[in-house]
Simulated assay, not measured.
Amino acid sequence: MKRAFITGITGQDGSYLAELLLEKGYEVHGLVRRSSSFNRGRIDPIWTTHPQAADHLHLHYGDMTDGVSLVNLIRDIAPHEVYNLAAQSHVKVSFEMPEYTASADGIGTIRLLEAIRQAGLESRFYQASTSEMFGATPPPQDEQTAFYPRSPYGAAKLYAHWATVNYREAYGMYAVSGILFNHESPRRGETFVTRKITQAVARIKLGQQDRLVLGNLDAVRDWGYAKEYVEGMWRMLQHDEPQTFVLGTGVGATVREFCQTAFEHVGLDWEAHVDYDERYERPTEVDALIADPSKAIDILGWKATTHARELATLMVDADLELFSRG
């Protein structure tokens, strides 16, 4: 039985990946940060929906800023595959917490790579890179596009990306970077713009909220469905040769278009409910991120099937169900 270690298992991607790997017969180990309150809402249902989870899903306390915990866990688990999904992943927050973002997202990756190397394991390593590394570089963006990050988050992730490439080339490690464009789902955090929109739409439709306040409505993003993207992560680690891959839909949509679709889905006029507030603007904006996923399609046979319009309606329906339950 293959063993996988997932950092960030309690997040959107981590929970979907854990489900996928359990279905594929893996023993799954996940890194969980210690907190005074439980934050396992995304993975708790796995124990009831996946019969294998009782015996094959294991959680461990640790932190990407604590190298000792990572060394001990890698040594004890001896995973065949490591998926580094843990991060302070909110771009706006990274301007307010730049040092922590750099430590968790950037140096944290070095800590994990070193833990694998020092343990002498032949683990296959996946690094969750991000389209935010492209930043100001015009779309479409692929594996050869120049990087130009526009936030502490993007810069920290770029450090981690190049560290992954360096460990592959310097030590012969099987280490890959997946440069994923925006991918969302009903499990997306409530502070991210897509989930903020779909939750507001559901609450407004149900009479539980009146207004939605947003920042830049003109930003263009390539939005896909997170559940599909974790399949791409897994496929990267099954390929014979470790490489960098871009995952995305190849189609861009503005925040305004996503918002309009979400409101129209429940029969509402978005302009009657949305207000603008400059406080939600970033200090340096990323205007447009649109993937060219040709390499992943050709080599991995992976292709996104859910685009922004379908994604918005899917998420609104999930939030309507959530808030209808009270």
Rank of each mutant, 00 (worst) to 15 (best):
V71G: 06
H29S: 10
F38D: 15
D44H: 02
L59V: 00
A54I: 04
T49W: 10
G41H: 06
H56Q: 05
M64V: 02
V71D: 09
V82A: 01
G30P: 01
G41K: 10
Y61D: 14
I77C: 11
G30Q: 11
Y26I: 01
T65H: 01
T49H: 12
G62W: 09
T65L: 10
N72I: 00
K24T: 14
V32Y: 08
S15F: 09
L17N: 05
W47V: 13
D76N: 04
L73Q: 14
K24H: 00
H60D: 11
A86N: 04
I74R: 12
P79Y: 06
E27T: 07
I77Q: 10
L70N: 13
S69M: 09
V71C: 06
H60P: 07
E81C: 05
A18F: 02
S35N: 15
S36A: 01
A54D: 13
T49I: 14
E81I: 11
G41E: 00
V28T: 13
I77Y: 05
L31D: 09
P51A: 10
H58Y: 03
P45M: 04
D55G: 03
T65W: 14
Y16P: 12
T48H: 06
V28Y: 14
D63V: 01
D55I: 02
S15M: 12
A87P: 00
H29L: 14
R40K: 09
S69Y: 12
G25T: 00
L85Q: 11
E81V: 11
E19D: 03
V82D: 13
D66T: 00
G30W: 10
D55K: 12
E19P: 07
Q52H: 06
A78G: 05
R75V: 02
V82P: 07
D55Y: 03
P45D: 01
A78M: 12
L31Y: 04
L20Q: 04
Y26L: 08
W47T: 01
Y61G: 10
P51M: 03
T48N: 09
N72Q: 12
L85Y: 10
V28P: 11
Y61M: 10
S15W: 06
D76A: 01
V28H: 06
K24I: 08
D63F: 13
K24A: 04
D76G: 03
K24F: 07
N39S: 15
S15N: 03
E23M: 03
D66K: 12
I43D: 07
V68S: 13
Y16L: 05
L73C: 09
